[in-house]
Simulated assay, not measured.
Amino acid sequence: MARPIWSGTLTFGLLNVPVSLMSGERKVDLHFRMLDARDKSPIRFERVNAETGEEVPWKDIVKAFEYDKGNYVVVEQEDIKSAAPEGHESVEVETFVDASEIDVRYYEKPYILVPGKKAEKGYVLLRETLRDTGQVGIARVVIRTRQYLCAVMPQGDALVLMLLRYPQELVDPDDYKLPSGSTGDYRVSAREKDMARKLIQSMRADWNPDEYHDEFRERLQALITERIQAKGATARVDEPAHEREGDATNVVDFMALLQKSLGENKRTPAKKAAAKKVASGKVAKKATKKAAAKKAAKKTAAKKTARKAPQRKAG
């Protein structure tokens, strides 16, 4: 069961509706790791000082804004906290606008508002009123430490909260050289327009999003699955936890090598080295025991010889 991002209230006027904010999207991208082609070990990216080449611990890293090439101003964590909005857990509807007035370029990311216990009445009231009037609520919401502009709109049985981009995040189309004017300015004939209209009409269909799939991802997923099955096994890579501020700085930077090659049961170079080390340790230990036993035997023999030797009488 998915967990809510936060639980709070949806407010408009004097009406407060307890809600939980749930993600409205599902990540389906295939994520790849970069490996060393020689032994298939994962590549790890380090925090390295550009001048010295030395790794920098988290406690020595600060955030800065590059206001000019090579010139920075450091922004302290306290500065960021002071600029962050208050963490009030509410979706505050400030106004209602006609849904058709919102440019599609403003829509960014969907969430689903789920009503709390015994909050269904207010939820349904807002949902159906928005549906009947064709309006959407424009609100502000704080998610984690950032304040977003958003639109609250009905979708089936749900109230969807859609994050909106701010105007300064959009590029004005007038920034580009685009063909303006009428079709006549570009010698588009009436017959061509009529043929284009008929073509569009012949290709018209009802919108059914289930008919569309990420074909590239599906083919790639099928290829990966086929390759895994052909090899008969998958390889597991154990990674050490990333060092954070306050962690010990003398932790060995070790990435476990692949325990098994796909479909093969071969020892990795690291395992061979470890086996040799253990074997050499056993040999050394055995040789030490043998030398000690030999030394003890010589000592015992010397004592026996001393006891058997006749003592000389004083003259």
Rank of each mutant, 00 (worst) to 15 (best):
L10P: 00
T11S: 11
F12H: 11
V17F: 01
V17N: 04
P18D: 02
S20M: 07
L21K: 00
S23E: 14
K27D: 15
V28A: 14
V28L: 13
V28T: 11
L30Y: 01
L30D: 10
F32V: 07
F32K: 10
D36E: 04
D36G: 02
A37C: 11
R38E: 11
K40D: 05
P42E: 01
F45L: 12
F45G: 00
N49Q: 12
N49P: 09
E51F: 02
G53S: 00
E54I: 12
W58N: 08
W58F: 04
D60Q: 13
K63G: 06
F65S: 04
G70W: 05
Q77L: 11
Q77P: 06
E78S: 14
K81L: 15
S82A: 15
A83M: 15
A84T: 09
P85M: 14
E86H: 11
G87W: 01
H88R: 13
E92K: 11
E92T: 14
V93Y: 02
T95V: 10
F96G: 03
F96Q: 02
F96D: 02
S100H: 13
V104G: 05
R105Q: 13
Y107K: 02
E108W: 06
G116M: 03
G122K: 09
V124M: 13
L126G: 09
E128W: 00
T129W: 05
L130I: 03
R131P: 02
I138E: 07
R140E: 04
R140H: 12
V141T: 01
V142T: 15
Y148D: 01
Y148R: 05
L149G: 03
A151R: 05
M153S: 10
G156D: 13
D157H: 11
A158Y: 10
A158G: 10
L159R: 03
L159A: 04
V160P: 00
L163M: 13
Q168R: 07
L170H: 06
P173V: 02
D174V: 10
T183H: 02
G184P: 00
Y186T: 05
V188H: 08
K193W: 09
D194R: 14
D194L: 14
A196Y: 05
A196T: 01
R197T: 07
K198D: 06
K198W: 00
L199Y: 09
L199I: 15
R204Y: 03
D206A: 04
P209I: 07
Y212D: 08
E215M: 13
A222T: 08
L223M: 07
L223V: 06
E226P: 00
Q229D: 12
R236W: 07
R236D: 14
D238E: 15
H242W: 04
G246F: 09
D247H: 04
D247R: 04
A248C: 08
N250A: 14
N250S: 14
V252C: 09
L257I: 01
L258T: 10
L258F: 03
L262I: 00
T268H: 11
T268N: 10
P269C: 11
A274I: 13
K277G: 06
S280A: 13
V283M: 15
T288N: 15
A291W: 05
K295M: 11
A296K: 14
A297I: 02
K298A: 15
T300C: 01
A301K: 12
P310M: 04
